[in-house]
Amino acid sequence: MWFKKTKEPRLQKKVKIPEGLWVKCENCKEIVYRKEIDKNLKVCPKCNYHFRISAKERIKLLADDGSFMEFDADIVPVDPLNFEDTMSYPERIKENQKKSGLQEAVISGEALINGHHVVFAIMDFSFMGGSMGSVVGEKIMRSAEMVLEKKIPLISVASSGGARMQEGIFSLMQMAKVSAVIGRVKDNGIPYISVLADPTFGGVAASFAMLGDIIIAEPRSLIGFAGPRVIEQTMKQQLPDNFQRAEFLLEHGLIDMVVNREDLKETLTKIIGFLS
């Protein structure tokens, strides 16, 4: 490249925001005191931007205190393709387990939500972008089979870039597997509520996430089949404002409602009340 940098840039004194004390809102770019955001369920108090939250935070938000009992925490991924890129897949898994404190990209279990028994399957974007491989597929399927047995509602919270590339065809087939079991849940008259959090794409959107009897999204979450960058490259035109945002999907009739995080638990409770 002709413009290759040859000299190191001169030292610039950057104003460093002390790690952890302040957060810059990705939406309104305001610098907000972290404690204030944490107190506000990780929602920007200035612009209502919903920061991503972990599966564990989500459980705290939705399940009655101390009621969550995890299922299948002992299922862990293997490396069916011997996939290797810049690092091997097992190394990548280990790294993500360490980074996220999770075994995999979904936590499932039984809990009470304002006294109602439900099964949760909650994804965590911080584990390999919430991608769906064999373990995610298996845990979601078992959660659905659990509600078939117990006759209680199933609630999933999606947050995922899509199918996990490193497990190749096995990941792709999880889409069919989880969709099939959701079909059984519907056949048996058991409610299935799907919550879409930022972001929900690809193989997760195109399987269980869009199959909810009721689909709820968090404000401004990006949701779609193909990523916006891919679409921009294909269409060679600028994408419309709000494209693939929760509000855009609501407008196009693809989801039932957009619900603020602080109202999510009450909304779910109300729906379960209607259906039980």
């Binding site: 269980f208 199959l211 089949f225 419309p240």
Partner: peptide, 16 residues
């Protein structure tokens, strides 16, 4: 992967 496809629910169509 197109704008119209997304507007009309590509994910939902495949999932269904």
């Amino acid at each position: 992967p197109g704008i119209g496809a997304e507007e009309r629910g590509q994910s939902e169509a495949i999932a269904m």
